[in-house]
Design a protein around this nucleic acid. Sequence first.
DNA 1: GAGCCGTGGTT
DNA 2: TAACCAAGGCT
Length: 415
Amino acid sequence: MTKNTNDTKTIYAIEMWPIEKIKAFRKALLDWYDKEKRDLPWRRTNDPYCIWVSEIMLQQTRVDTVIPYYYNFLNKFPDIASLATAHEDVLLKAWEGLGYYSRVKNMQKAAQQIVADYNGVFPEDPKEIAKLKGIGPYTAGAVSSIAFQLPEPAVDGNVMRVMSRLFEIDADIAKPASRKIFEEIVRELIDPDRPGDFNQALMDLGSSICTPLNPRPEISPIKAFNAAYQHGTMHLYPVKSKAKKPVPMNLQGIILQNKDKEFLLEKRPKTGLLADFWTFPLLQVEPVVTDRENKIVVQTELLVAEAYPTEEVHDKNPEIAFSQIEEALTAAVAAKYQLHPIWLKAETGSVNHVFSHIKWHITGYYGRVLDAGNGTLPENCKWVSEHDFPAYAFPVPQQKMWQQFQQNTRKEFNL
DNA sequence: GAGCCGTGGTT
DNA sequence: TAACCAAGGCT
């Protein structure tokens, strides 16, 4: 930060406004917020715990999605102590469907930190708040300003977009390093008397008027402060590099039922994608498929490194594809689960699911196991009656598989 | 710093 | 449809 001759600061080569303009900006923004702000559940409380819960849930997640989860979560875990001592399966169930599941695990660790280090009372110092697990720069600023009226910036995607247009900032907002620039700017602009409202007003403006697509700067309460709008350069901001496309992956979803009508569920590892969630067994098994010269097109093996579109497998040799898939499934299931199912001669469905960085294509197969009890099931596997399904945390791909099985296969074959 | 980590809504 | 988007943080 340097000082100019005309008494204004320069932040990362961006010239800050004089104090009179800053004050006018605060008033224009807060007047609009007072008039237009939405009535949201977490805006009816000053409890830092409730504010915290809302901020974690709102990370990369829409307001409409969060609202029912917010009520349910506070009902189940009304305070820091109850969160700190919750059972993990109950915790995950409360977050089921929200995504980014490490958020809730980190939140519990933070609750335990607060119990251990702060006598169970949420700390009021931004530096201390930022030490809590799962609380990064944005959330630390949000809780500090909203719950404790501290003049801390809370820079999220909305704020970066708004500021990049106001000041015609060329920094790539997709890069983590850019956030610091915007924090310095917000530190200068933030209203010291209403920091929480100021931060929330910026975010509300970003989500309603200063939107990524089809923004309406002409009706913005701060259009007079918008350099990009005034200069006709709105289309240039924000600068944001493109995200990578999700990598496709093919899986077989194995729906197995024993003679007690129970289904085989598998708990995923405690780190990585969908950690600690339950699904039908998912295998990366490709059948041996040969072309008309008996040349191998796809080699059967577990954990095939490269994804291979199932449709192509059928296309290459449709008349023998299913029996060869069946053969491969039988071998894989015997090896991994020590089970020997009798397969239904049809797929139970086809599920597509897109994650942030992976795209799953799951083909479902149903098998009935009559000799269960001989082999030893892997430690993370369990036969479960569907009556007990509501107690298990399922990711969306699993729910899609189950839905297809019920609606299609089960009805048709009376299983 | 870049990759990992979900899901649902919009265009 | 595919692409893009939404109140990020951790490793």
